[in-house]
Structure formats: C-alpha cells, structure tokens
Computed example of a mutant assay.
Amino acid sequence: MIARSLVPHPDRAAVGISLVAAALLAALPAESLPRLLAAMLITVLVGWIIWQDAVTFTIPDGAVAGIVMVGAALRLGEGLEALHDPRLVIAGLTVDAVFCAGTLLLLRELFYRRRGYDGLGFGDVKLASAGGVLAGVQGFAWATFGACALALAFVLVRRVAGRPMGARDRIALGAFLAPAILLVWALGRMVPSLDATGF
C-alpha cells in the first residue's frame, strides 16, 4: 500500500503524534489554537479510517487510539476548565467508552448468533469506544443514527444505479461512522447547547 511505503509504521506514528498532541492539550491552557490543532489531527485520523475501511474493510488501530487519546485530553481539559473533579471526568468518559463499545459488541454477538457470520468487525467496536470518548453516549447515538442513514442511502443509490447489494455484501460501516462522529463532535464544539459530553 502507498501509505505503508510513505510511513512504514502508520499505527505507531499515529499513536506517537496523538500522544504528543494529548500531552500538549493537557499542558497548555484551553485556548483556540490547541483545540484547532486537535480538531485538525482528529480530522486526519478520521480521513485515514474512511480511506482504509472503504478499501480494506479494516479500521486502523492507530487512528482509533489517537482519537481516544486526543478526545480524552480534550474532555479532561474542558472538565478541569469547568472546575469538575478530574476523577469524575475520567469516570464519565470511561463509562461513555465502555457503554458505546459494549452496545456494538452486543449487536455484533446477537447478529452472529442469529445469522452464523459476523456482521460487524472488532474495528467497529473499537471505533465505538473512541466515539464514546470523543462525543459521549448521546453524541455517539446521534452519530450511529447518521452513519446508518448514510449507509442506507449508499445502498439505495447503488440499487438505483443498477448495482444492488445482496444480503451478504459488506458495507464499510467505519467509513460512515467515523465522519458522523466527527460531525457530531464538531457541532457540539460550535453549538455548545448541542454538546453531548456534558462539559
């Protein structure tokens, strides 16, 4: 793959860059420049997820880990800025991550038991965890709704174009879910009344 020849270990690179970004977000005052850089990094990571999932039906662990680290640093910084107890903020984002991942894991298991084959990959479950950290449970619920609506529209467009999809044809859910999470998170930043993380 071209990306692997340009960056031999993209997952490690993403984790390293995200770790530095998270440390900077924690060390610097909550101003617009660090938040803008965090938004740019999250956008790049989401773009990577879209591309890789659409091409290979896999979601890069480095991108998911990067979103978790940057999202956690942002939420922790916002919680401290609002004078919340850091332990409560960490507990809140942990609950959000576990609940979102657990929901998709349960759906994955139910689908497998009913149909006998996997309908969701573990990459989608990990992405759900990152979505919970970044956007909160409510934000992730809206992102999931939007991603499913986009995926259904994609199936409809293919059908209208004369290329219908069968019951066993795969859809790269992460390619729809990642930008939906980004959009919900960005809307929460631009319109604070829509922020679902509680900070």
Rank of each mutant, 00 (worst) to 15 (best):
A3G: 09
R4D: 12
R4I: 00
S5P: 06
L6C: 12
L6M: 15
P8T: 02
D11G: 15
A13H: 10
G16F: 10
I17G: 07
L19N: 05
V20R: 06
A22W: 02
A22V: 00
L25K: 02
A26L: 15
A26V: 07
A27F: 11
A30V: 14
E31M: 14
S32Q: 14
L33V: 14
R35I: 01
L36K: 13
M40T: 06
I42A: 08
T43E: 11
T43Q: 14
V44L: 15
L45V: 04
W48C: 07
W48N: 03
I49M: 11
I50P: 00
I50C: 12
D53T: 00
V55D: 15
T56N: 09
F57H: 08
F57A: 11
T58Q: 14
I59N: 04
D61E: 12
G62H: 00
V64E: 02
A65R: 06
I67P: 01
I67C: 06
M69A: 12
G71R: 04
A72Y: 04
A73K: 06
R75N: 12
R75I: 01
G79M: 02
E81T: 07
L83W: 10
H84E: 10
P86W: 12
R87D: 11
V89S: 03
I90R: 03
A91V: 01
A91G: 05
L93V: 05
T94D: 08
T94R: 05
D96S: 09
A97E: 03
V98H: 04
V98G: 07
F99Q: 06
F99P: 00
T103L: 15
L104D: 03
L104Q: 00
L105W: 13
L106V: 01
L107F: 11
E109L: 15
F111N: 03
R113C: 09
R113A: 10
R113N: 14
R115Y: 13
R115N: 15
G119H: 00
L120H: 03
G123H: 01
D124K: 08
D124S: 07
V125T: 01
L127G: 03
A128D: 03
A128T: 00
A128V: 00
S129Y: 01
G132K: 06
G139N: 09
A141V: 04
A143H: 05
T144M: 15
F145W: 12
A147C: 05
A147M: 03
A149W: 15
A149Y: 14
L150E: 12
A151M: 12
L152Q: 14
F154W: 15
V157R: 13
V157K: 11
A161W: 09
R163H: 15
G166W: 08
G166A: 13
R168M: 11
R170E: 10
A172T: 00
L173E: 04
F176P: 03
L177A: 08
P179H: 13
I181M: 08
L182Q: 11
V184C: 11
W185M: 08
G188T: 08
R189S: 10
M190T: 09
P192V: 04
S193G: 09
L194F: 07
D195L: 09
A196C: 12
G198R: 07
G198I: 02
F199P: 02
F199C: 01
